[in-house]
Amino acid sequence: MRFRASITNIHTFTKFTASLATLGHIAWVRLDEKDVRFTVIPENGSQVWSVLAKDAVFDTYTIQSAAPGNTINLEVPLAPLQRALKSAQNGTAANIRLTKKDNIPLLSLTITTSTMNNPVPHGTQNDTGVEEFREESVDFFGSRQDRETVVTQDVPIRVLAPASVQGIHEPVCREPDVHIVLPNLMQLKSISDRFTRLASSSKSKSGFGAGSSGPKLELSGNMHGCLRLSLSTDAMRIKSLWTGLENPELDPDHVSQGEDGLANHPSTRMKAMGDETGETDEGWATVRVEGKDWGRVLSVGRLGGRVIACFCHDHALILYVFLNGEGPGEGESVLTYYISSYSA
């Protein structure tokens, strides 16, 4: 089993990892000849299934496995991976490979940095011995800038047998009632986080939010470009309303039964209800999300992709985050978040 690649887009990879790390500690990583899949299924909260086209972040990508389809399945702790990638931010080159040390399998990052020490004059030195000493060495090692320092970061991992991942399947949901492009995630997250805080501050006395999990926010969308976030507590009722958002057209080729399927699609029916002002009570598909979990999901905003939210009323919310490919011929990189709706 062998895997080796050079990382060409360290910033995307770092932000990608950071987004996943907010949801869970460990990712199931599946490597094959085409792409790299990261899946995080936390004990509680939303799960994410993501596909990174190998060209999106890697170059000189080598994989060799005895498993069918030339795949490698790993369990990777996200926090150490994120930290390892962070140390490559200012490097000149970074490589990742699967290796083993002391019998522990590792993802080893090798980061090359150019030497950072431009010889700084130490003007405040007042000890003549030191000054003299320094001059000697500076004089002697005049060309010190050209060397490279190598940093290796070893992330401990586990290798998974194909059988052990057979039972894990990506969730399948019914056709969504509403699909809508989310507004700027930074704004949405900021407002959502305020709502969550508002809910927490009045939670103690109202017993709001059943069970031990945190406060719930109500998120609704309609087929007329409206998105609504609302919250009720004893102390207040608050809602934020976005209008003028885009409801992307469905591609008949991707809907079962083509044009007929489209005509009977739930979103087509939803289109007949509600309006662009978002003031009516009709035509909304609503889900209830846990505030903190929702905030963690929205941290994917750092990747800057286009986000389409699919509402299955009272059931689930699915977010598709499309990363911008940097060139033609690249495979599609997309993160899919599955968020369960809590009952009212």
Partner: peptide
């Protein structure tokens, strides 16, 4: 009387990016 924290949080909704909340790595 109203809840002061709710009032302040509400008014703060648009103070989107409070520099104090930018987390250091």
């Amino acid at each position: 009387e109203v809840s002061l924290s709710s009032l302040l949080e509400t008014l703060s909704i648009f103070s989107l990016y409070d520099p104090a909340t930018i987390k250091r790595p």
